[in-house]
Protein backbone atom coordinates (compact mmCIF):
# COMPACT_ATOMS: atom_id res chain seq x y z
CA UNK A 1 0.00 0.00 0.00
CA UNK A 2 1.18 3.52 -0.76
CA UNK A 3 2.63 4.65 2.60
CA UNK A 4 0.61 7.87 2.74
CA UNK A 5 -2.57 5.84 3.23
CA UNK A 6 -1.25 3.71 6.10
CA UNK A 7 -1.68 4.67 9.77
CA UNK A 8 1.98 5.71 10.03
CA UNK A 9 1.63 7.79 6.85
CA UNK A 10 -1.40 9.64 8.21
CA UNK A 11 0.28 10.14 11.58
CA UNK A 12 3.49 11.60 10.11
CA UNK A 13 1.47 13.79 7.71
CA UNK A 14 -0.50 15.21 10.66
CA UNK A 15 2.81 15.91 12.41
CA UNK A 16 4.20 17.69 9.35
CA UNK A 17 1.07 19.82 8.98
CA UNK A 18 1.27 20.78 12.65
CA UNK A 19 5.00 21.60 12.35
CA UNK A 20 4.48 23.76 9.26
CA UNK A 21 1.48 25.40 10.95
CA UNK A 22 3.57 26.43 13.94
CA UNK A 23 6.46 27.55 11.71
CA UNK A 24 4.11 29.84 9.79
CA UNK A 25 4.44 32.33 12.67
CA UNK A 26 7.93 33.08 11.36
CA UNK A 27 6.25 34.93 8.50
CA UNK A 28 3.65 36.56 10.69
CA UNK A 29 0.90 35.58 13.10
CA UNK A 30 -1.97 33.95 11.18
CA UNK A 31 -5.04 31.77 11.66
CA UNK A 32 -3.25 28.58 10.69
CA UNK A 33 -0.69 29.20 13.44
CA UNK A 34 -3.31 30.09 16.03
CA UNK A 35 -5.26 26.91 15.27
CA UNK A 36 -2.23 24.71 15.95
CA UNK A 37 -1.16 26.84 18.91
CA UNK A 38 -4.50 26.17 20.62
CA UNK A 39 -4.46 22.53 19.58
CA UNK A 40 -1.00 22.20 21.14
CA UNK A 41 -2.07 23.86 24.39
CA UNK A 42 -5.21 21.74 24.62
CA UNK A 43 -3.41 18.45 24.01
CA UNK A 44 -0.66 19.33 26.48
CA UNK A 45 -3.19 20.34 29.15
CA UNK A 46 -5.23 17.18 28.49
CA UNK A 47 -2.19 14.99 28.97
CA UNK A 48 -1.19 16.83 32.15
CA UNK A 49 -4.70 16.38 33.53
CA UNK A 50 -4.49 12.67 32.81
CA UNK A 51 -1.05 12.35 34.37
CA UNK A 52 -2.07 14.20 37.51
CA UNK A 53 -4.67 11.54 38.20
CA UNK A 54 -3.06 8.40 36.77
CA UNK A 55 0.50 8.95 37.97
CA UNK A 56 0.27 11.24 40.96
CA UNK A 57 -3.08 10.85 42.65
CA UNK A 58 -4.40 7.38 41.82
CA UNK A 59 -1.50 5.29 43.17
CA UNK A 60 0.44 7.54 45.54
CA UNK A 61 -2.69 9.06 47.15
CA UNK A 62 -6.05 7.36 46.44
CA UNK A 63 -4.83 3.74 46.61
CA UNK A 64 -2.82 4.45 49.75
CA UNK A 65 -5.90 6.09 51.25
CA UNK A 66 -8.50 3.40 50.50
CA UNK A 67 -6.13 0.41 50.25
CA UNK A 68 -5.89 -2.15 47.47
CA UNK A 69 -7.85 -5.37 46.96
CA UNK A 70 -6.07 -8.70 47.35
CA UNK A 71 -4.70 -9.82 43.99
CA UNK A 72 -5.92 -13.39 44.43
CA UNK A 73 -7.76 -15.36 47.12
CA UNK A 74 -5.59 -15.85 50.18
CA UNK A 75 -3.46 -12.74 49.65
CA UNK A 76 -3.45 -10.24 52.51
CA UNK A 77 -5.89 -7.36 52.13
CA UNK A 78 -4.10 -4.05 51.66
CA UNK A 79 -4.91 -1.58 54.41
CA UNK A 80 -6.00 1.92 53.57
CA UNK A 81 -4.86 4.96 55.52
CA UNK A 82 -7.91 7.16 55.70
CA UNK A 83 -5.99 10.12 57.13
CA UNK A 84 -4.69 10.81 53.61
CA UNK A 85 -8.13 12.31 52.89
CA UNK A 86 -6.92 15.40 54.76
CA UNK A 87 -4.72 16.15 51.74
CA UNK A 88 -7.85 16.84 49.69
CA UNK A 89 -8.93 19.98 51.59
CA UNK A 90 -5.27 20.96 51.83
CA UNK A 91 -4.87 20.69 48.04
CA UNK A 92 -8.17 22.47 47.42
CA UNK A 93 -6.98 25.40 49.53
CA UNK A 94 -4.72 26.21 46.57
CA UNK A 95 -7.82 26.85 44.47
CA UNK A 96 -8.88 29.61 46.85
CA UNK A 97 -6.45 31.80 44.93
CA UNK A 98 -9.44 32.72 42.76
CA UNK A 99 -11.41 33.96 45.77
CA UNK A 100 -11.07 37.67 46.49
CA UNK A 101 -11.83 37.27 50.18
CA UNK A 102 -10.02 34.04 51.06
CA UNK A 103 -7.12 33.94 48.61
CA UNK A 104 -4.67 33.95 51.51
CA UNK A 105 -5.57 30.29 52.10
CA UNK A 106 -3.82 29.30 48.87
CA UNK A 107 -0.59 30.23 50.62
CA UNK A 108 -0.91 27.26 52.97
CA UNK A 109 -0.25 24.49 50.38
CA UNK A 110 2.19 26.79 48.56
CA UNK A 111 3.91 27.42 51.91
CA UNK A 112 4.23 23.69 52.50
CA UNK A 113 5.79 23.15 49.06
CA UNK A 114 8.13 26.11 49.58
CA UNK A 115 8.96 24.83 53.05
CA UNK A 116 9.84 21.42 51.65
CA UNK A 117 12.05 23.13 49.07
CA UNK A 118 13.74 25.39 51.61
CA UNK A 119 14.42 22.53 54.00
CA UNK A 120 16.19 20.69 51.20
CA UNK A 121 18.40 23.70 50.42
CA UNK A 122 19.91 23.42 53.86
CA UNK A 123 20.27 19.67 53.47
CA UNK A 124 21.82 19.63 50.01
CA UNK A 125 24.23 22.53 50.22
CA UNK A 126 27.31 20.63 51.26
CA UNK A 127 26.52 17.69 48.99
CA UNK A 128 26.40 20.06 46.03
CA UNK A 129 29.30 22.35 46.75
CA UNK A 130 31.58 20.44 49.16
CA UNK A 131 33.39 18.51 46.43
CA UNK A 132 33.52 21.56 44.19
CA UNK A 133 35.16 23.66 46.89
CA UNK A 134 37.72 20.92 47.47
CA UNK A 135 38.24 20.65 43.71
CA UNK A 136 38.85 24.39 43.46
CA UNK A 137 41.60 24.43 46.09
CA UNK A 138 44.25 22.48 44.16
CA UNK A 139 48.05 22.89 44.58
CA UNK A 140 49.30 26.10 42.99
CA UNK A 141 53.00 25.35 43.49
CA UNK A 142 54.76 22.60 41.52
CA UNK A 143 56.08 19.57 43.39
CA UNK A 144 58.64 18.78 40.72
CA UNK A 145 60.76 20.73 38.24
CA UNK A 146 61.82 17.64 36.27
CA UNK A 147 59.49 18.75 33.49
CA UNK A 148 57.69 22.04 33.04
CA UNK A 149 54.70 20.42 31.37
CA UNK A 150 52.95 17.11 32.05
CA UNK A 151 55.13 14.47 30.36
CA UNK A 152 53.79 12.08 27.73
CA UNK A 153 53.45 8.98 29.92
CA UNK A 154 53.01 6.66 26.93
CA UNK A 155 56.46 7.59 25.66
CA UNK A 156 58.15 7.19 29.05
CA UNK A 157 57.20 3.50 29.34
CA UNK A 158 57.58 3.44 33.14
CA UNK A 159 56.94 0.57 35.55
CA UNK A 160 53.48 0.79 37.23
CA UNK A 161 54.90 2.16 40.53
CA UNK A 162 57.05 4.75 38.80
CA UNK A 163 54.15 5.70 36.55
CA UNK A 164 51.88 6.23 39.55
CA UNK A 165 54.57 8.34 41.22
CA UNK A 166 55.03 10.44 38.07
CA UNK A 167 51.28 10.97 37.78
CA UNK A 168 51.01 12.08 41.41
CA UNK A 169 53.42 15.00 40.84
CA UNK A 170 52.23 18.55 40.22
CA UNK A 171 54.05 20.02 37.21
CA UNK A 172 54.51 23.73 36.56
CA UNK A 173 51.86 23.80 33.81
CA UNK A 174 49.37 22.14 36.17
CA UNK A 175 50.21 24.55 38.98
CA UNK A 176 49.61 27.52 36.64
CA UNK A 177 46.31 26.00 35.49
CA UNK A 178 45.24 25.42 39.10
CA UNK A 179 46.16 29.01 39.97
CA UNK A 180 44.19 30.40 37.03
CA UNK A 181 41.22 28.22 38.01
CA UNK A 182 41.31 29.50 41.59
CA UNK A 183 41.67 33.13 40.50
CA UNK A 184 38.73 32.79 38.10
CA UNK A 185 36.44 31.29 40.75
CA UNK A 186 37.39 33.94 43.33
CA UNK A 187 37.03 36.85 40.88
CA UNK A 188 33.66 35.68 39.52
CA UNK A 189 32.43 35.07 43.04
CA UNK A 190 33.61 38.51 44.16
CA UNK A 191 31.73 40.03 41.21
CA UNK A 192 28.58 38.42 42.58
CA UNK A 193 29.17 39.05 46.28
CA UNK A 194 30.47 42.61 45.99
CA UNK A 195 27.98 43.88 43.44
CA UNK A 196 27.43 46.91 45.68
CA UNK A 197 29.84 49.86 45.53
CA UNK A 198 32.94 48.35 47.18
CA UNK A 199 35.57 50.75 48.61
CA UNK A 200 38.58 48.44 48.50
CA UNK A 201 40.63 48.84 45.33
CA UNK A 202 41.53 45.16 45.35
CA UNK A 203 37.88 44.09 45.56
CA UNK A 204 37.02 46.48 42.73
CA UNK A 205 39.80 45.08 40.51
CA UNK A 206 38.83 41.49 41.32
CA UNK A 207 35.20 42.24 40.52
CA UNK A 208 35.96 43.87 37.19
CA UNK A 209 38.29 41.00 36.27
CA UNK A 210 35.47 38.68 37.37
CA UNK A 211 33.15 40.38 34.88
CA UNK A 212 35.52 39.60 32.00
CA UNK A 213 36.03 36.03 33.17
CA UNK A 214 32.28 35.61 33.51
CA UNK A 215 32.01 36.31 29.80
CA UNK A 216 34.01 33.13 29.14
CA UNK A 217 31.34 31.12 30.96
CA UNK A 218 28.55 32.91 29.14
CA UNK A 219 30.35 32.46 25.81
CA UNK A 220 30.55 28.71 26.41
CA UNK A 221 26.88 28.57 27.33
CA UNK A 222 25.98 30.62 24.25
CA UNK A 223 28.04 28.35 21.99
CA UNK A 224 26.43 25.22 23.41
CA UNK A 225 22.96 26.76 23.21
CA UNK A 226 23.44 27.61 19.54
CA UNK A 227 24.47 24.02 18.79
CA UNK A 228 21.47 22.67 20.64
CA UNK A 229 18.94 24.94 18.97
CA UNK A 230 20.30 24.17 15.52
CA UNK A 231 20.15 20.46 16.28
CA UNK A 232 16.48 20.77 17.20
CA UNK A 233 15.83 22.54 13.90
CA UNK A 234 17.77 19.91 11.95
CA UNK A 235 15.59 17.28 13.64
CA UNK A 236 12.46 19.01 12.35
CA UNK A 237 13.91 19.32 8.87
CA UNK A 238 14.77 15.61 8.94
CA UNK A 239 11.21 14.87 10.01
CA UNK A 240 9.75 16.90 7.15
CA UNK A 241 12.17 16.05 4.32
CA UNK A 242 13.30 12.52 5.09
CA UNK A 243 10.66 10.90 7.32
CA UNK A 244 7.72 12.44 5.43
CA UNK A 245 8.75 13.66 1.98
CA UNK A 246 11.34 11.01 1.14
CA UNK A 247 9.93 7.98 2.99
CA UNK A 248 6.21 8.59 2.65
CA UNK A 249 5.51 10.87 -0.30
CA UNK A 250 8.29 9.54 -2.55
CA UNK A 251 7.99 6.06 -0.98
CA UNK A 252 11.79 5.69 -0.85
CA UNK A 253 13.61 4.08 2.09
Amino acid sequence: MYPLFTYDGIKVTCGVLATVGLYSVLYRENKFYRFFEHLFLGLAAGWTLLTIWVENLKGPWWDIMVGVPPEKAGDPIGNGNWAYILLLPLGLMGYMVFSKKHNWMSRIPIGIILGLWSGQQIQIWYNTYGKQIAGTAQPIWPTTWSSLTVPNYDKLQLAPDALAAAKSQVYLSQAITNFLFLVTVVCVLSYFLFSFDAKSKMVKSASSLGRYLLMIGFGAIFGSTVLMRFTLLIDRMYFIWIEWFNNIILNRH
Binding site: I10, K11, V12, C14, G15, V16, A18, T19, L22, Y23, V25, L26, F36, L39, F40, L43, A44, W47, R229, F230, L232, L233, D235, R236, F239
Partner: peptide, 21 residues
Protein backbone atom coordinates in the same frame (compact mmCIF):
# COMPACT_ATOMS: atom_id res chain seq x y z
CA UNK B 1 -0.81 7.50 19.71
CA UNK B 2 -2.10 9.84 16.99
CA UNK B 3 -2.90 12.62 19.45
CA UNK B 4 0.15 12.15 21.69
CA UNK B 5 2.94 11.05 19.38
CA UNK B 6 1.52 12.20 16.04
CA UNK B 7 0.50 15.70 17.09
CA UNK B 8 1.49 16.78 20.61
CA UNK B 9 5.07 15.53 20.47
CA UNK B 10 5.70 16.86 16.96
CA UNK B 11 4.33 20.28 17.92
CA UNK B 12 6.43 20.20 21.09
CA UNK B 13 9.51 19.66 18.93
CA UNK B 14 8.44 22.38 16.48
CA UNK B 15 7.79 24.96 19.21
CA UNK B 16 11.23 24.54 20.72
CA UNK B 17 13.06 24.46 17.38
CA UNK B 18 11.64 27.83 16.27
CA UNK B 19 14.18 29.51 18.55
CA UNK B 20 16.96 28.53 16.11
CA UNK B 21 15.59 31.10 13.63
Amino acid sequence: DLLFDGLLQQMDAAMFSVIAF
